[in-house]
Design a binder for these strands. Structure first.
Lengths: 233, 233
DNA sequence: TAGATTGTTAATCGATTAACAATC
DNA sequence: TAGATTGTTAATCGATTAACAATC
């Protein structure tokens, strides 16, 4: 898995989507599928599907297509979903709590072992059986519990320092919901979920589609009121 | 904004990040910046910055660089952040509630006006002043309140039908947290936040970096226990 | 003016699509 | 065998980087 040719980020980002569609097919008791059929379902070209999959091996068979169960399982292994992952949530606010309460993660093997926060009012509490600890206990906890992933859901002012500490203590990956870019050693992986950025790109596209110049579309119902600018999120 | 040459998705996705960095510079009372300086901060090439910005106009000045406040404001206008947006949350579960409680959206002008759910136990309740309504009331509400964006945070089995209805009723954009691809008319914009997919790509990268073959890295502490496969999220 | 830095064209790189021989 | 469909090479398309004349 290591010495082979590097897989492009575009391909990696599509893998979970393939996995999802194959899981759905499996649910519908469909046993085989061709790249052409799958391409129609997924709205991508058959060529791209074959190219993507062939990065990892020849999973299909000429004249037949792909065996759904087999391919589903292969992608599962490729994504590393055939093992458990220990995770912690750093920052017990809205999003942190929502993620702890999201039971589907556990079913997939993504196990949240603990939450860390600085707020004495929530330290000691339990969220769906997961205890909230003082951040002061984080170094010791990580070293004793082989934590793979830290989920960062804290204010951006604190995220950078915390991420540095976590990297030092051996966390391999950060799932970063804090609205800031982290600076970590290259052997620590970061995946950003910048919700505000995501929403902004949606708004851009809405404005582009429904812009004033275009008489073809419904009238934009924009209000010219200037919102208060936010400085810390 | 409409008849001009189409902006590439890659550029659009970078706009919020430019906006964020310029906001930070403004905070630090930095009045001007060159593409070279900004490139060092953002870890992208100066060439890319100049190319990106020039899609929208010549905001800089030779020999000087860019005026931070001016450029910040121009990007704000490009992204359409100089107006308010009315949004509703469809699905009052963990994530839906967390988003309602996230006060920074409102400060930016992203206003959540109402939550809709089918659960009688939460209908009538109020989350940070935002009322939870019965989904039966959604059509009427949307038609009377010029809703721009629907935030979908419901189980995937229900999301597709709801998205269809919302499109019919005139919602312009969907911010989709449901783990399914929506099929909507082309004048309705969809931005997906597939949290499970995002986490999976992180895990892929962790496995690639810390794979068994590699003796250079820490030992992977994987457990060979097979998690229960989840069918509905 | 001289130095700095943009805006923009050209070159390179990477990702997607097309085509087709191999083969089940 | 004949038809279908893969795996893979080649062609195209798009995005990034480099280079530099224009100009503040």
């Amino acid at each position: 898995m290591d010495s082979e040719k590097r897989i492009s980020p575009a391909v990696i980002n599509r893998l979970p989507r393939y996995y999802r569609y194959l899981g759905d097919l499996l649910e519908s008791d469909i046993t085989r599928i061709s790249s052409k059929e799958l391409s129609a379902k997924m709205n991508i070209t058959a060529s791209q599907i074959r190219q993507d999959l062939n990065n990892f091996g020849g999973f299909g068979q000429q004249g037949y297509g792909y065996n759904v169960e087999y391919l589903h399982n292969e992608i599962k292994k490729i994504l590393g979903l055939d093992r458990l992952y220990n995770m912690i949530v750093v920052g017990g606010g809205n999003i942190g709590q929502a993620l702890v309460n999201y039971t589907n993660f556990e079913k997939r093997g993504f196990v949240i072992k603990a939450v860390f926060d600085i707020n004495p009012r929530i330290i000691g509490m339990t969220i769906r059986g997961v205890e909230v600890h003082d951040v002061d206990k984080m170094e010791e906890y990580i070293k004793n519990n082989s934590i793979d992933v830290a989920i960062l859901t804290l204010p951006r002012s604190k995220a950078v320092k915390v991420a540095n500490d976590l990297a030092k203590w051996g966390v391999k990956g950060m799932w970063n919901f804090s609205h800031v870019d982290l600076q970590v050693p290259e052997d620590v992986l970061v995946e950003n979920v910048h919700l505000t950025d995501s929403l902004m790109t949606l708004l851009y596209k809405i404005n582009e589609m429904y812009s004033e110049e275009s008489e073809l579309h419904h009238l934009a119902n924009g209000l010219p009121i200037k919102p208060i600018v936010d400085l810390e999120d």
